[in-house]
């Protein structure tokens, strides 16, 4: 029994970071008032660039490249939606389409359909002493992003709720006019948030191809970017909430995969498809219950115009 819990916990901690980073990125962008439908595309670009970079440079540096690539795509999003006040959903969807088709095109023309050549994965850290403890030992043996993913949400939550910068970020998503009245730049704050969300989404994608797998695969990230949006909504737009939701979704997935291999009888009873739909159904349920009192930032999706004050 303990071994089962151990292995479930271990695979959750292995799979969750990518989702956690993307969900945090989505929270950052949306709390500043910019809709984050483009997470999927930014993750894909991050995953692709990290895998390609890792062919020629040390893997940790390649992860940074993936983050920068995600931020570059976010830069396009920022240019269109902040600088030119375009529809944020349109811009995000367009980036998803470009990343999807562009990734396939570049992959096929440079490396063929089976993905990039295998790369050196990120080193896994063995925490001495911990590995021997039952259950808790599952915390040992992961790569650096896993540990970062466990700490970052709390640091981010502190930043958002306890610091002046956090207050400004929240204000710019709820009532940008108030921020502008204080003589602060609405667009600078939103730019910062959007680029930051690109870095986080890129990191999430890079983790997929350098820690979870050892290459960029054709379908990466296969909808994780949208699940990150679900985690953000489920976690009511707070970093720790999104973290818990993302971890919960990752755990549910690990449980599902575990059940398929160990208890096929149970899967007969509850079909896999229903389990796969569960995170999204839960998110819809939360939204339905919250209704109009939803915790979404008030100015979400509204481009800021100087004259509108």
């Amino acid at each position: 029994m303990l071994e089962v819990i151990h292995s479930l916990l271990f695979s959750t901690l292995d799979a969750a970071p990518a989702l956690i980073f993307a969900a945090l990125g989505a929270v950052l962008s949306e709390r500043a008032g910019v809709i984050a439908v483009g997470m999927e595309g930014m993750m894909r670009v991050g995953a692709f660039c990290a895998a390609v970079a890792a062919l020629t440079m040390p893997t940790p540096l390649a992860v940074v490249m993936g983050m920068l690539a995600g931020a570059a795509l976010a830069g396009v999003h920022g240019f269109l939606s902040i600088r030119w006040r375009s529809d944020q959903v349109v811009s995000g969807i367009a980036l998803n389409l470009v990343a999807l088709a562009g990734g396939t095109f570049l992959l096929e023309s440079l490396y063929g359909p089976n993905g990039t050549p295998p790369i050196q994965q990120l080193t896994r850290w063995n925490l001495p002493g911990l590995s021997a403890v039952p259950v808790l030992g599952a915390l040992s043996g992961h790569s650096a992003p896993t540990y970062l993913a466990l700490l970052l949400p709390f640091a981010f939550q502190g930043l958002l709720t306890r610091t002046p910068l956090g207050l400004r970020l929240r204000a710019v998503g709820d009532k940008p006019q108030a921020v502008a009245t204080l003589g602060l730049s609405v667009s600078a704050l939103r730019w910062g948030a959007v680029l930051g969300s690109g870095l986080l989404a890129g990191l999430g994608g890079a983790v997929l191809s350098t820690a979870v797998l050892d290459r960029f695969e054709q379908h990466t990230p296969a909808g994780l970017g949208f699940m990150a949006l679900a985690a953000m909504v489920f976690g009511r737009w707070t970093p720790v909430g999104a973290f818990l939701a993302a971890t919960f979704f990752a755990f549910g997935n690990a449980l599902r995969i575990g059940l398929v291999s160990s208890a096929p009888g149970l899967v007969e009873l509850i079909p896999q498809g229903v389990l796969l739909a569960l995170p999204y159904l839960l998110t819809l349920g939360v939204l339905t219950l919250q209704g109009q009192r939803s915790s979404a930032p008030a100015a979400l999706g509204t481009p800021y115009e100087q004259e509108s004050r």
Partner: peptide
């Protein structure tokens, strides 16, 4: 948000 979720469902 709801239509994205409904797609995956």
């Amino acid at each position: 948000i709801s239509t994205i979720m409904l797609n995956w469902v």
